[in-house]
Simulated assay, not measured.
Amino acid sequence: MSKIAIVGTGRMGTAFAKRLLETGNEVTVWNRSAKRTAAAAESGAQVAQDLAEVVDCEMILLSLTDAEAVSGVVQDLIGAGIQGRLVIDLSTLLPEETRSISAKLTEAGAEFVDCPVGGTVGPALKGQLLGMAGGAETSFAKAQPILSQLCKRVEHLGPAGSGSQMKLAVNLPLAIYWNTLAEAMSLLKGSGISAETAISLLTDSSGGPNVLKNRGQVVIDTLNGTDQPGTFDLAGLLKDLDLSLKHAEVVGSKLPIAQVSGENYRKAIADGLSNFDGSSLTRHLLSD
């Protein structure tokens, strides 16, 4: 049994807590808004009153929205005394931001691994995520047993920031896909082919991504006119798309398709679709 703290109990942080409790660990959770720890507490997690209680745990997992939130928590953890602890950041950040956070924690005497994950709440609860890790080999070796309880595959990719870099590459095709699906569906106008049939055939084709296999009915319902709440919604997709565009500037890459996709996301979100499934972008584009 490991003594683990999870900082950030949104949808994913809560799923991490439930999974790690299920696999026999002692879990403590903390969230800036304490009421959001309720679901994890109901599953058996202890609730820390402050971050000073968090540093009593040997391993600290971060599941936060952005670099500002992660940096703020890290600064508080350092102030509480983080020496000898292992911090695993599961958030999706820019690689440059991750490396900066790693340097601060290392200087304070902690170890650090960045391991953003591919997958949403359902896979997290089943331990079926895809883990992309960066950090020192010795730190990754300590993190791997716990990460393996959350992930069906965990890959150590290199030094700190490598996991963040890979996560951006993994999420970019998905963010773009909802745009290309709209173009594909537009070719069927006037054909009489239903959304059910089209999505079924696309799912079974070489062009069918996993998201259609996992969320086919959600996509069909959305295309038939009923937007569905998103586990990875338009706001989250745009956030990661924007991170990809920012990182592309740093490494000197050009992402013209991503830029156009970002404009489409912004229009859909302006029309109130922020919290809906990615397929709502497809429907929105088809309705123009």
Score class of each variant (00 low, 15 high):
33 S>L: 06
170 V>P: 00
203 T>Q: 13
266 R>P: 05
150 L>W: 08
165 Q>T: 05
12 M>R: 08
61 L>M: 14
250 V>I: 14
10 G>S: 07
156 H>A: 11
13 G>Q: 08
37 T>I: 01
102 S>F: 05
258 A>N: 09
30 W>F: 15
229 P>L: 01
286 L>P: 11
55 V>Y: 07
128 Q>L: 10
225 G>I: 11
92 T>F: 07
221 D>T: 15
251 V>T: 15
256 P>W: 11
133 A>P: 03
44 G>Y: 11
179 N>Q: 14
33 S>N: 11
66 D>N: 15
111 E>L: 13
245 L>I: 12
10 G>A: 07
252 G>W: 09
198 A>T: 05
272 G>T: 06
48 A>Y: 04
228 Q>V: 13
172 L>D: 07
130 L>P: 00
73 V>M: 06
153 R>C: 00
232 F>R: 01
230 G>N: 07
159 P>D: 13
271 D>G: 01
19 R>E: 03
68 E>D: 14
13 G>R: 05
261 S>G: 15
113 V>W: 04
280 S>G: 14
62 L>Q: 10
5 A>W: 05
192 G>W: 09
287 S>Y: 01
3 K>Q: 14
260 V>H: 13
159 P>M: 00
248 A>K: 04
24 G>T: 07
273 L>G: 02
142 K>H: 07
9 T>W: 07
29 V>P: 11
93 L>A: 08
117 V>F: 05
39 A>I: 06
245 L>P: 03
48 A>C: 07
80 A>C: 03
169 A>Q: 11
25 N>M: 01
124 A>G: 10
273 L>M: 04
200 S>F: 04
265 Y>Q: 06
149 Q>Y: 02
168 L>P: 08
260 V>N: 13
195 A>R: 08
198 A>C: 03
58 E>W: 01
102 S>G: 12
45 A>Q: 05
224 N>E: 15
213 K>Y: 00
281 L>N: 04
99 R>V: 15
77 L>A: 06
282 T>V: 10
62 L>F: 14
226 T>Q: 13
252 G>F: 02
123 P>V: 11
146 I>S: 12
236 G>Q: 14
221 D>K: 15
191 S>N: 07
224 N>Q: 15
237 L>W: 03
41 A>I: 04
170 V>G: 03
260 V>E: 12
115 C>A: 12
94 L>N: 12
43 S>H: 09
241 L>Q: 02
223 L>D: 08
199 I>P: 06
74 V>T: 10
96 E>F: 00
72 G>W: 08
79 G>W: 02
119 G>C: 02
143 A>N: 10
57 C>S: 15
201 L>K: 01
15 A>S: 14
276 F>G: 00
63 S>M: 15
277 D>A: 11
256 P>E: 05
